[in-house]
Nucleic acid binder design. Sequence first.
DNA 1: TCATTAAGCGTTG
DNA 2: CAACGCTTAATGA
Length: 224
Amino acid sequence: MITPEHLRQIASWSNDLNEQEFERARRGIAEKDFSKGTYISHRGDRLDSWNGVVSGLIKVSTVSRTGKAVSLAGVRAGGWFGEGSILKNEPRLYDLVALRDSRMAFLDRATFLWLFENSVAFNRFLVRQFNERLGQFIALVEYDRMLEAPGRLARTLAWLFNPVLYRDSSRHLELSQEEIGLLSGISRQATNKSLQILEAKGLLRLERGGITILHLEKLARFGD
DNA sequence: TCATTAAGCGTTG
DNA sequence: CAACGCTTAATGA
């Protein structure tokens, strides 16, 4: 079982819980490692847990009717997701892929539902997160029409630095251009070009194997 | 036809 | 050694 300190580290929401709720959450969590390129779950699975990323990088994707893989979002360490499938008690609507060696935390369904019924703090967290996700979804619909690669890439990056979804306010992330491409659904060359455009506009700084966000607001709106 | 991509490979930090 | 960036052949709009 994970330690209280560990839970505080991997789940920002746990810091808002009272003692009883915190203990319950701690007992309901199990961790598991996934190596690069493997599937954490497939579309259609009944994965009865709420998922947190302890370390690494996860891609949420789905397959379009024509059989093409479509990337929906990236989740980095500290992110929690999958509440929709639990609350609606339905199978996963998407695939989860580990883009690099990653460690996941799973909060079992019964514990999730208990927290949902009993913890005000937990619900507050969920509402805030839902609200952000709704914003993301609207942006997704918008950029479906906006085909330029730099804009799509900029939004993907902005999501990874959403201050509500990730409470640590770090502006830097170790993320290769290949990984950014995989998350954005853009080829490596196009990713490189797009990143250079964004860097020239002063929105971010490129480093070897990583990026630093210089202007999150402008990044989130790039291409409007 | 023209643009974009995956694959391979040389370079670089 | 992994990330980067370039070349090239294939793909497809």
